[in-house]
Design a protein around this nucleic acid. Sequence first.
DNA 1: GAGTGGTCTAGACCACGCA
DNA 2: GCGTGGTCTAGACCACTCT
Lengths: 240, 240
Amino acid sequence: MAGTETSKIPQHRKLYELLRKHIVEGVYPKGSLLPSENELCSTHDVTRPTVRQALSRLASEGYIIKHQGKGSIVRSLPKGIGILSLQGTTSGVGKHNLKTKPISKPYTRKWPEDFPFDLSELELESGCIVLERTRIVDGSPVLYEISYIPNINLPRFTNKSFENKSLFDVMRSNYDIEVIGGNQKIMAILANKEIGNYLNIEEGDPILKLERKLETNRSGYSFYSSIYCNTNNFYLEGSF
Amino acid sequence: MAGTETSKIPQHRKLYELLRKHIVEGVYPKGSLLPSENELCSTHDVTRPTVRQALSRLASEGYIIKHQGKGSIVRSLPKGIGILSLQGTTSGVGKHNLKTKPISKPYTRKWPEDFPFDLSELELESGCIVLERTRIVDGSPVLYEISYIPNINLPRFTNKSFENKSLFDVMRSNYDIEVIGGNQKIMAILANKEIGNYLNIEEGDPILKLERKLETNRSGYSFYSSIYCNTNNFYLEGSF
DNA sequence: GAGTGGTCTAGACCACGCA
DNA sequence: GCGTGGTCTAGACCACTCT
């Protein structure tokens, strides 16, 4: 009744986000047991399948490990950069001091010629908005990310600020667009001068390159990222 | 009643594997719709949550995309190497001609000094079995994988053949050990002479390195892999 | 034996896409 | 309006772990 804003969020998602927050904040320390599924049921007034959906997402993202007959054990927080899930590039970076710095204001352009994903007619003729940012962990640049967003029905987008904000958050709060899935290609390349500059490494150093496609709840609407990652001091981490 | 061997496999898993096989074999071509969830229910005599569990795994591994109100659409088969899920390194390689070639027979040794994961007392004092293999796609080597398996209760393991067999299959069929989860670290490095040799590339070429930990249904029992990957012609692919 | 997670049933209502 | 997937309920039985 009260709060039409938040009541759209499914129960399993609310529980997932609550538990995730508690794990990250140390309410449930590493190695400890989460409350049992039945406890969570009665505490949050939901049924087991709902609880299990939340827990299975926590497990697939590496926050917990489930053991039959024992319970759900909190894992050590990932020390790497959890870029392999879709929670944004910053998820799981833990207590590291992470900042996002825009290289320039967002600008519009035609799609690059050698774009690594297939584009629809609509996407092609609309052009794209480009966002260039670096992510800085503990003072040193680790990621250089170029995001390509189809320029379709996004009023005043280029005026938004992205400093220390997730692109996902901006899309969700301003346009009600949520990422529901995606896929990515990963390869190793050598840094050129430009990338080396952004990541503060030498030309010829090995770096990771990711090409990502993020699908949203708007049917047929996706956005795209190319990410260059310096893995000398950090590595990408993923769970399954 | 008949077949105590197979009847242990959960229904959602059987359905998942059936649908996956059909997708890979082209029974459901790219872009086509899978049968609806309710159809699958009646066809396979299960209820919707069971069907949904199978479909959600297919979706998370990138085989299908679900669209509310439309149905589950078969995606194009990944052209990369689906190493980011836990289905073995060969999953999703599609119609490419993939072969697994052992570098040597499995051998036992102490754990390496600089092992990238924490080991238990039991694992440490038991030592490990090492398996070195290359994966060859369309005639050129793409992966060089070193697997570390704790030498605990695995009778006659070093006599098994691993040529063109998944380590997962050997573990499951011989020892009833199944992989239930894991995590991995990914970084970019430069090939040294040895790796360059295995992957048929130059020293100093950029390659991907993965450190994986695979957890099994034996409580506390995991195995480990270091994987070196030549991404000049192929790339790693993952979905979420 | 008690408690845990793993699996499964048999329904229900809703939001969405399409004709 | 109809069928689709998204969410959720209220139970059930089993296999596993611990004591």
